[in-house]
Design a protein around this nucleic acid. Structure first.
Lengths: 205, 205
DNA sequence: TGTACATCAGTGAACGCGCGTTCACTGATGTAC
DNA sequence: TGTACATCAGTGAACGCGCGTTCACTGATGTAC
């Protein structure tokens, strides 16, 4: 950003305007309502003009997803690093859910679309949200707080936690969309319950 | 079905053929690939002919969803009723996930679409899958196996369990779609972990 | 059983629409001397 | 600072497409006597 020309700055601003418009349309009309024409209308461009900035509609969607993954990671990074593993895992889960609730457009695009290779990479790669989750669980296992079992190591633990928060997020964004209930304590307690399971005992059934 | 005329039977068969075609198209081309014309092509009809059986495309989708909910309930009913609550909850969860994996088309339609009122009703109503879950948890609480906490009663417990299995199902059907990994023990252990949390202790964090 | 008529299942063509993308173009911005 | 030229950002019209739905129709099925 430091050695950018005015032209480059204008381009970056337009690029961002396109992505913002795309997000807003998805938020208001759903993924199906997202079209090049709709984006162009919203930023007072002709549809053809968009091709100066993105090669295709698919490229725009991918860019929104990438940005979303980056923002999700940022949100999860805000969680205090010095908490004990169980508390930190709770915080990460709540941050994840909060991101989904407050950015439903981006979240649905990120996870409802056929995930492109770049997309999967973005999620799994270093400096993404999944490694944060994994690292916390590893710390918990190393500290003896989370107890692995045969066939249930750190990867499986992370998979459990991710599934739970993803399930909560998706249910809230789709099925329970316009239920006027307050889920905040339910979400916290659901996470607490899973974390309790990671911490202990009771693997008889 | 007992006092049905030949005409009625033919109609029922055609209706079913339409729904089957719709499911197959969603399975092969995704929700976006589902069109009246595609359905008609598949059953050698003209598109207009479908309107003899369904008022609109929306009505077809809704019918597929309703059928899906019914099948899901049937699958969950297969779980042994005499298992202790923890074991039964595990069985119900695994049956739920198995249904989603084996009927990805129907499952995605059921949960990815804007849920119509009829759809929500189908899920929540008597003789659906959610009450089965709830009843099992109530039995567990009554038997002292699952331990409620303040702000975490049977409804919240059911919400936790549903979120976990839904999250697992959705991740598998979208993000982890073509990963050649075997998740069956991971799924089981994830459920076990949550159930362990329902059973006990550790609500410090 | 045969005939006349009503109902029904399914067709083919057309409606208007919005879509992603391409392409020849033009006026504005930037560059070199 | 002024001029000549190149590059660039954005336009407008058009392409071919597939969509959901309607409608006048026709041949087949069913019904009544």
């Amino acid at each position: 950003m430091v050695d950018s020309t005015p032209r480059e700055r204008r381009q970056a601003r337009t690029r961002e305007a396109i992505l913002t418009a795309a997000r807003q349309i998805v938020a208001q009309k759903g993924v199906a309502g997202l079209s090049m024409r709709a984006i162009a209308r919203r930023i007072d461009y002709s549809p053809a003009g968009l091709y100066e900035y993105f090669d295709s509609k698919e490229a725009i969607i991918e860019a929104v997803c990438l940005e979303g993954h980056w923002q999700l990671m940022q949100a999860m990074r805000q969680v205090d690093e010095n908490l004990p593993p169980a508390g930190r895992l709770l915080g990460l889960g709540l941050a994840y859910i909060a991101f989904a609730i407050h950015n439903p457009e981006a979240y649905l695009l990120m996870f409802t679309n056929p995930p492109s290779p770049a997309n999967v990479l973005a999620l799994m790669s270093e400096s993404s949200s999944y490694p944060l989750l994994l690292a916390t669980i590893e710390a918990g296992v190393a500290g003896g707080v989370f107890r692995p079992r045969p066939g249930y190591g750190v990867n499986e633990m992370a998979y459990s936690a991710w599934s739970l928060v993803h399930g909560i997020a998706m249910l809230r964004l789709t099925y329970l969309n316009d239920m006027p209930l307050d889920f905040s304590t339910s979400d916290r307690e659901a996470l607490q319950t899973l974390i309790g399971g990671l911490q202990g005992v009771g693997n008889d059934a």
